[in-house]
Design a protein around this nucleic acid. Structure first.
Length: 785
DNA sequence: CAGTGAGCGAGCTTCCGCTTGACTT
């Protein structure tokens, strides 16, 4: 039996470490935290110095029992959890739950999973740092108090089951405020002048006027003044430039880059990364550190020299910028730099490749350029046109990796190419000059990944919680991730043309400026985060009553206090008292005094009936109310649709909603009706529902069109049907998305492997259905009734 | 896959951070 039991947080880590240590060591994992505050409201005794009641959750019982058993037999228990606040607390919980006496405990830490690092850690054990543990308890207690006092206020004042918390509420705030900025934004038009010159008879040199024109007349005047102008190179400047690689990935930068380059959601990224980690391909994927271990630096150096040559290597040590970083792990990197690709599904391969490239590139030399700026004089004007070119002299890290950006600014997205050979004073022949109307752009909506970036900048949340936070705010219905169509927008283009390419512009007959309008699509969004009305109402409520918690600096300021506790400079109960006193008073006052938050907005009067029209949120979401509630008459209600919001909807648009449901004639002697449901517009006919294609306006659908849609759907259903039964029309064998299955009334029944769906009899279906009923899918739902 | 939206009251919801399964449609 091993004399030593070493406990880490992650089982994958445990497996690796076991290989480094001899048979005297048994290495096990705690699977993260083993205890948490009890579920209900009595977890924290506020009167009694915030003393906490912990319990081992049921899914952790087996782990704890096993560790208990092993700890009993071991002489020394090495607590090797992560070197941060949470890790220290896990060690303390282990000591408590496993009832480990102080003289059997040795607390050790290491930042990289290598044999020398672990052996050296074992040479330098310490005891549990209780100040750090208290800092964690303060963090845990504060989060529970905030979450479990604030959420019930929302249940009373907005609607049940909502939630609020130190992290999620600020995440929602960012999205709500950004949406309002976008709504308040008015695009300003400016004319941007570009010119193309011919050099040696070829149209090659593109230049731009640095200044923009607000008025179309100014732009026109500028172009007109260029008609008979001569152009020449006023100055030519060549200077070297270089670009350095980005640091290796942290959780947040990996999520951002995987979103931009691979289109992964943050949760998908984490799922795939977890698999790569478990199979030993990459280091730990939940980290805020950009640091690489010495062995990693050496591994990267060797690989770069081997694959690209020594001159491509440059040793770089990165420093983590974020003040909130706890740096218990390395940056995310491949375990072995020699392995350029991995097996597995496409997602794993692509994510690995991204991680490998980024980590390798981070140890490579700069890319070197030669930048040329040209200023072109116009004989008739003071202004100069500018052209810029770039030549790559040495690719350096660009050989493997190029970081992408969120902003695809039209001014920078044009790849700067090489310029033709030019001399100072050289005359240039104008091919074409254009003034194009361009519009200023509103701030960008958040994607999941750009929200993570922002949260990290604010020091809010941790690598392990970015993905869960984003799914929480969506699950609560505060935020919706979706695509939205853009709107067409016209813009003007003024062109100075040369009708005949051989003819110079000066000779162009009347020098007429061609004016055109073109159309572009603006405001189209893909996978962006939009606030819901509930999100906005909850946000405004919290902003009004709990300003302190909603402050972007709240986390940063409590973190500072947690640090002071960790350093033994501050009493943790004192910190909590100072926070909780005023906070709790505020909660009570708000419950007492605040009215219901509905976000109600009056839109005006219905021109037809003269009744009041108002929007607000209710139990079932945002809706319009037409008329007041009174003895004689009830108001009419209509739910808002799709992307409509109580904040932006207008009177006319709101009244449109009362045109539905609408009867549109009959078919097969049954009435048809159009309406809009949870999944979009549909036609209802004979108790059945037929969804209306996305590109059709439900209000425009007439009898004929509706019948067409019904028949279409019936045809499609018939194609999907493999078999029906005379015994019971509710039972069918259908071809589904995942293959054939039995539709048994409302119940879907799987067909066992190896069974030919076409050969099933009605009796078989009944039998299979009953079997399925007898073995219901056990959902891993935590609960007790 | 509709509609509903008053008010009562029982019993429920809820936080953040650390980990990995066992679930399938």
């Amino acid at each position: 039996m091993a004399k030593n039991l070493l406990i880490v947080e992650s089982p994958a880590k445990a497996k690796t470490i076991e290989g480094y240590l001899g048979p005297d060591f048994l290495v096990k994992s705690s699977y993260g935290h083993i205890r948490d505050l009890v579920k209900g409201d009595d977890a924290i005794d506020i009167e009694n110095a915030f003393s906490q009641k912990y319990e081992v959750p049921s899914e952790k019982k087996a782990v704890v029992e096993e560790l208990k058993r092993l700890a009993k037999k071991a002489e020394i228990i090495w607590l090797a959890t992560d070197e941060d606040r949470e890790g220290e607390a896990i060690s303390w919980h282990l000591a408590e739950v496993l009832k480990l006496p102080d003289d059997k405990i040795k607390r050790i830490v290491f930042h990289e999973i290598t044999k020398p690092a672990i052996l050296s850690a074992i040479q330098n054990p310490r005891q549990i740092d209780y100040d750090l543990v208290r800092a964690q308890q303060a963090r845990r207690v504060l989060d529970r108090l905030v979450g479990f006092e604030l959420s019930p206020v929302l249940w009373k004042k907005v609607k049940p089951s909502l939630s609020a918390g130190r992290v999620q509420s600020v995440a929602v705030r960012l999205i709500v405020e950004r949406e309002r900025e976008i709504n308040a934004f008015t695009a300003e038009a400016q004319f941007r002048v570009t010119a193309v010159f011919r050099v040696d008879g070829k149209a090659v040199l593109k230049a731009e006027l640095p200044r923009r024109f607000r008025q179309v007349e100014e732009a026109e005047e500028f172009l007109a003044s260029c008609i008979s102008a001569e152009f020449k190179v006023n100055s030519l400047e060549v200077r070297p430039a270089k670009r350095s690689p980005a640091a290796p990935f942290t959780t947040s930068t990996l999520q951002q880059e995987a979103s931009r380059k691979l289109g992964f959601s943050v949760s998908r990224t984490m799922l795939v990364a977890q698999k790569l980690y478990e199979s030993g391909k990459i280091t730990y994927m939940r980290t805020d550190s950009v640091n690489l271990s010495d062995t990693a630096l050496e591994g990267a150096r060797q690989e770069i020299s081997k694959a690209y040559g020594d001159k491509y290597h440059k040793l770089r040590q990165y420093k983590t910028k974020s003040a909130s970083a706890q740096e218990a792990h390395e940056a995310i990197r491949p375990t072995y730099f020699g392995q350029h690709t991995v097996e597995g599904d496409a997602a794993a391969q692509r994510l690995y490749e991204l991680i490998w490239k980024r980590a390798i590139a981070s140890q490579m030399s700069e890319a070197q350029f030669e930048k040329t700026s040209v200023k072109i004089g116009i004989s008739t004007r003071e202004e100069e046109l500018q052209a810029e070119g770039e030549v790559l002299k040495f690719d350096g890290f660009l050989k493997v990796y190029m970081e992408s950006t969120d902003e695809e600014d039209e001014n920078t997205s044009e790849v700067k190419g090489m310029l033709p050979p030019l001399n100072q004073g050289q005359s240039l022949e104008l091919e074409q000059m254009q003034a194009t109307e361009r519009f200023s752009r509103s701030p960008a909506r958040y994607t999941e990944a750009s929200l993570v970036k922002k949260l990290e900048e604010l020091g809010i949340g941790r690598p392990s919680t970015y993905a869960p936070t984003i799914s929480t705010i969506q699950k609560r219905g505060y935020v919706i991730k979706e695509d939205r169509d853009g709107k067409p927008r016209e813009y003007r283009i003024l062109t100075l043309p040369t009708p005949d390419k051989t003819q110079s512009l000066a000779k162009f007959p009347e020098g007429k400026i061609k004016k055109e309008t073109a159309t572009e699509i603006t405001g189209a969004e893909k996978n962006k985060l939009f606030p819901s009305d509930v999100g906005a109402v909850v946000n405004d409520f919290l902003m009004q009553h709990f300003n302190g918690i909603m402050d972007y600096n709240f986390t940063a300021s409590v973190e500072k206090e947690f640090d002071e506790i960790a350093q033994g400079m501050k009493e943790w109960t004192r910190m909590l008292e100072d926070f909780y006193g005023p906070f709790h008073k505020n909660v009570e006052e708000t419950i007492e005094n605040a009215g219901k938050a509905t976000g109600e907005r009056e839109l005006g009067l219905d021109p037809v009936s003269g009744k009041r029209v108002a929007v607000r949120i209710g139990r079932y979401g945002p809706f319009v109310q037409l008329g007041e509630s009174s003895e004689e008459e009830k108001p009419r209600y209509a739910s808002l649709r799709g992307s409509q919001s109580i904040e932006t909807i207008g009177l006319e648009e709101a009244l449109e909603l009362f045109k539905l449901p609408k009867k549109i004639g009959s078919f097969e002697e049954k009435e048809m009706q159009v309406n809009i449901g949870r999944f979009g517009p549909y036609i209802q006919h004979d108790k059945k529902f037929y969804s209306i294609p996305k590109d059709m306006e439900p209000l425009d659908i007439a009898e004929e069109k509706a019948i067409e849609i019904i028949l279409e759907k019936r045809k499609k259903d018939a194609e999907k049907t493999i078999k029906t039964f005379e015994e019971n029309p509710d039972v069918k064998v259908l071809n589904g998305r995942w293959g054939p299955f039995i539709a048994f009334g409302k119940q879907n029944v799987k067909i066992p492997k190896g069974t030919d769906p076409a050969s099933l009899s009605y009796e078989d279906c009944v039998k299979l259905s009953e079997e399925a009923k007898a073995n219901p899918k056990s959902k891993p739902k935590r609960k007790k009734s």
